[in-house]
Design a protein around this nucleic acid. Sequence first.
DNA 1: TCACAAACATGAGAAATCCTCACGATCTAA
DNA 2: TTAGATCGTGAGGATTTCTCATGTTTGTGA
Lengths: 216, 216
Amino acid sequence: MTTPPSPGSESLRHLPRQTRSQERFNRILEAAAQVFAEVGYEKASTEAIATRASTSIGSLYRFFPDKSAILYALAESYAEQLRKVLAEAFDPALSHLPLTQVINEAVDDFEQFYITQPGYQVVFAQTRLSPDLQKLDKRLDSEIALHLEKFLAARQSTLSPEQIRLVALISVETAGSLQILSLTQTEAFRQQVMSETKTLLTRYLHPLFPDPPPKP
Amino acid sequence: MTTPPSPGSESLRHLPRQTRSQERFNRILEAAAQVFAEVGYEKASTEAIATRASTSIGSLYRFFPDKSAILYALAESYAEQLRKVLAEAFDPALSHLPLTQVINEAVDDFEQFYITQPGYQVVFAQTRLSPDLQKLDKRLDSEIALHLEKFLAARQSTLSPEQIRLVALISVETAGSLQILSLTQTEAFRQQVMSETKTLLTRYLHPLFPDPPPKP
DNA sequence: TCACAAACATGAGAAATCCTCACGATCTAA
DNA sequence: TTAGATCGTGAGGATTTCTCATGTTTGTGA
């Protein structure tokens, strides 16, 4: 949210150079996250976002070429955070731990991120809005899968690198969709689904990546 | 597509009574499916849909209270078809077959539906557009899960009915999301993902629902 | 067959929304 | 301090969703 605009981004019309407009830019992003979370992407008017950010519609369009670019910038920010969280969870240095334990903790971290970032759900619910957003989402999944891949590769396995890559991608995708499912109902339901997610992933992965023997 | 408007639908402004307007209604739905598939929901203008259906914008709004109601009506039609397909795949009369076989065939049927109905992907990509659509999607998943539930319950298992329900829902959700993943890249990738989906589901379900002994 | 009412079809235009741009304000470097 | 670059503004142009007054078509009872 308070992340400065990433230099390589193609989605911004104009990078703010003065600190004044840097702050304005951040205010717009924060306001957009709020308004999107409150009324959804479709019903969030650019006027409302600008007003919430205490600025004018013209300033908003100074930074963003169109409405969907605001969503994209938000998505980039969330993606970066989530990538960091799961890179730690799948640190290959942890590969001596039991697989179940690592899975459980990764799923918990994932869940925690979803819960603490209310805007994330809205942004990624709109994933299929534009090809750009689709690509961003796909890239995020694939990057998370890459971390899992490296973690899994650090274990002895008969699988080829390509097979490991596929298995990692499937695991990430599955965990993600079950995460979303878990948020649709009551708290009790959520806990059941998360617990079942861990079971499912363990049953899927364990036959392929047996736990290493305890250190001598 | 050629389905008559379901009598219980809340999303229609006006049910057509004369056959003339019945046909017009169907033409609008077909046109909408085409235009949505071509340019996506957002960029599909109601004007373009009406023109494609060889009618006027007024006629369109005679039937549908707003643009999203068209999407909803389409979604209802697809949901009905998909429900039917999977009800057959999980016919409890098949519960004497090996679990793997039934899973494989259900996944194949699911895939076939996705591939043969180009509009389906677009419609359900917009699932989070409105609360109504979200509910419809959730209900569909839950109904498919109910079929699977009945199928699984016909096998001996130590699980409680509630546990079976949860397991069924998780399975359906997982298969659905992996289905979508499978369609994002090449044909070879799709086949790998579908094959892995079957493996994952089998590993998850088999410990809970062992195959029945062969008939004496 | 004809007259009448109910159902239906139409498209101009109201309302809402996205986005532009000309102008004025502010900042920075020399 | 001042010239030039950067920035902020909001009226209004362009587009899209949706309404409704008006005219047309259809079914029915005499």
